[in-house]
């Protein structure tokens, strides 16, 4: 009956329940994301309140210039990408390890307590983390140097040490995110069909073998999708973490400056919406290209795992 119609309309009718189930989420996304998205034009405008977003005069690529002007574009882009990749790898490894341990562990009480406890860092804001770090590493009063002086060693000056900061950032990132991410993998492990383990037990498989041949392959889809999602944010990154933990320290900026912190510093007093928008568009554009590539590869290998 509908065979003559466009395939899309046909599907719309045939799968109308499915389409209807998509409607609420789509409406929210359209309202909260797609309509305001028109504001991207700001990146190419010299905004004024009187003419509004669309009426303001065009500025061409003027708003993008400052970002490339002081030669920091490459440095900050590199730092952003590298940090995000390292965080991703280390955090994912720790999260999966913890999830597997928690899922297999026998002691129920211990499990409960550790699981809850690992969530605590999530509630400590970056401002507080930054204050702790400062308290730890402050040259004159910091806990580390107080200890070092106590045992007669030379105090160290962490805040001028470029090599220390990548390590510190990786550690605090893990500290804040491991508990949170573990839950995601735990949920994925829990979803694995229990019969597979029972069959393996019957075959006399060891713990390690079960993890290697059942658990890890079964959580692969989750790993892949979280990796893909992370690629999409590889140029953004946790602004508060970099800003608060390093204290915006100019001595080590070469190794701690990411795009967001750089842009914030530049535009602090200028308040140019167009320039902020331009930096955002640059980040989105590059991320988008990276995701398209990554997704394309994944789709070739295993279409089910692809994002879109």
């Amino acid at each position: 009956m509908y065979s003559g119609k466009h395939p899309f309309l046909h599907d719309l009718h045939k799968n109308r329940t499915k389409w209807l189930m998509l409607v609420p989420a789509a409406v929210v996304v359209i309202l909260m994301c797609y309509i305001p998205m028109a504001g991207i034009v700001l990146a190419f405008k010299e905004y004024n309140y009187h003419d509004g977003i669309f009426g303001s005069p065009w500025a061409g690529f003027e708003n993008f210039k400052y970002f490339f002007k002081s030669g920091k574009a490459w440095l900050t882009t590199r730092n952003t990408v590298l940090y995000n990749l390292v965080f991703l790898c280390i955090n994912t490894f720790l999260q999966i390890t913890c999830a597997i341990m928690l899922s297999e562990l026998a002691g129920k009480k211990f499990k409960r307590v550790t699981q809850s406890v690992m969530f605590l860092p999530y509630f400590i804001s970056w401002v507080v983390v930054g204050a702790f770090i400062y308290n730890l590493f402050n040259y004159e009063f910091g806990a580390v140097n107080t200890f070092l002086k106590g045992i007669g060693a030379q105090p160290i000056d962490v805040y001028s040490n470029k090599r220390a900061w990548p390590v510190i950032l990786v550690i605090v990132s893990a500290f804040k995110n491991v508990g949170y991410g573990t839950v995601m993998y735990l949920a994925s492990i829990v979803n694995i069909d229990g019969e597979m383990y029972e069959a393996a037990d019957l075959d006399g498989a060891t713990m390690w073998q079960k993890i290697r041949y059942i658990t890890l392959p079964c959580i692969r889809p989750t790993v892949v999708i979280l990796f893909l999602l992370a690629i999409g944010t590889v140029l953004k990154g946790d602004f508060q973490m970099f800003w608060q933990v390093t204290g915006n320290n100019p001595m080590v900026l070469d190794v701690t400056d990411v795009i967001d912190t750089y842009v914030t510093r530049s535009l602090l007093t200028l308040q140019e919406f167009g320039m902020t928008s331009a930096a955002g568009l640059y980040q989105s554009g590059i991320s988008f290209i990276l995701v398209l590539i990554a997704n394309h590869i994944v789709k070739k290998v295993e279409p089910d795992y692809a994002l879109f």
Binding site: P36, M37, I40, L229, G232, G280, L307
Partner: peptide, 18 residues
């Protein structure tokens, strides 16, 4: 449809238009 949703997590109009 996945793409339709995912796209919004990459591109945004920024704070002011929103």
């Amino acid at each position: 449809v996945s793409f339709f949703f995912y796209f919004t997590s990459i591109f945004g109009g920024g704070l002011v238009p929103w």
